[in-house]
């Protein structure tokens, strides 16, 4: 509206147009270029989210492993228990069919339920675990603790984990806001130049948000990979005795679901953390490009 007024008032011959809003694909193209060139620098920015996501994944998948082992179908399975020392060796020797030694050693093989082993390691397995106990040939009887831990303690462990995850994600977001503000200051001349060349504020915002979206996605993927690796290692170490059961015990749909949520969370958080810095960048005056200090 002010255009047509001023144009009528001035009676000029040349029309001033409105700058077009660039198609989204252009913003994607330009931001991808920026991501590619500044990749390693940006990964340092994203290291906070990488670590937080790795933590989130390890909590989630670690929980899934424990839940899987605790589930009614799995916890009653009998596995060779590590109680007597070297069950692996015993089993192996028992299987190779050398007569007398087998007789001798077989007695020392102890089979226990998954629940019993978990209990002996201090994990809660729910009510049914106690009675099953050990079925060892040497008559060892099971029943650590006896009293089945209440579901409430499982609940509290979960909520404490959740609290830690949320806290670490918050720290990561604050880190991103900080790093992105620095990056805006670093790039003020580039932003000013772009505005001199005809970039709209909305384009600058889009550019920053897309960049952080891509970086957040990549960073989260790296975090997921690290988290999975750590969980795999820690689960194998922690549940070595029941390692054969872990893979079948895990609810893979729950894990995949969790990874999906994690990817979304990580990407979304890095975008959210960039909103304020992006607005700061967009508000920058084009004159900033003229400033000499680098």
């Amino acid at each position: 509206m002010p255009t047509s007024d001023s144009q009528l008032l001035e009676g000029n011959k040349i029309r001033i147009g409105k700058q077009i809003v660039l198609p989204f694909s252009k913003a994607v193209e330009i931001s991808l270029r920026g991501v590619r060139v500044r990749f390693w620098r940006s990964m340092i920015t994203m290291s906070g989210i990488i670590l937080a996501i790795a933590f989130m994944v390890s909590v989630w998948v670690g929980g899934a492993v424990l839940d899987g082992l605790r589930s009614p179908e799995v916890r009653e399975r009998k596995v060779i228990s590590a109680v007597l020392g070297e069950p692996d060796k015993l089993v192996y020797e028992a299987a190779d069919g050398t007569g007398k030694t087998v007789e001798l050693k077989r007695e020392r093989v102890v089979r226990n339920t998954v629940a019993f082993i978990l209990n002996s390691k201090g994990y809660d397995t729910g009510a049914a675990s106690g009675e099953e106990g050990a079925q060892g040939a040497d008559g060892r009887s099971a029943g650590p603790g006896g009293a089945a831990p209440a579901a409430a303690s499982v609940q509290s462990r979960g909520s404490k984990d959740l609290w830690l995850v949320v806290l670490s994600l918050c720290v990561a977001v604050v880190g991103i806001v900080n790093a992105m503000l620095m990056s805006v200051t670093e790039r003020f001349r580039e932003i000013g130049t772009m505005k001199c060349l005809g970039a709209l504020d909305s384009f600058i915002v889009k550019l920053f948000l897309l960049e952080s979206g891509f970086l957040g996605g990549i960073g989260t993927a790296i975090g997921v990979a690290i988290g999975l690796l750590l969980t795999a290692v820690s689960s194998l170490i922690g549940f070595w005795a029941v390692r054969g059961e872990i893979f079948s015990a895990i609810s893979w749909s729950s894990v995949l679901w969790g990874l999906g949520i994690t990817l979304l969370t990580g990407t979304a958080l890095s975008v959210i953390g960039t909103i304020y810095p992006a607005i700061v960048a967009a508000r920058m005056e084009p004159v900033a490009a003229m400033r000499q200090e680098a």
Binding site: P2, T3, D5, S6, I16, G17, K18, Q19, K195, C196, L197, G198, A199, L200, D201, P286
Partner: peptide, 12 residues
């Protein structure tokens, strides 16, 4: 008198 879009157009 120019708004942000017109200024951007002018600079462009």
């Amino acid at each position: 008198q120019l708004d942000a879009y017109e200024l951007a157009w002018l600079r462009c």
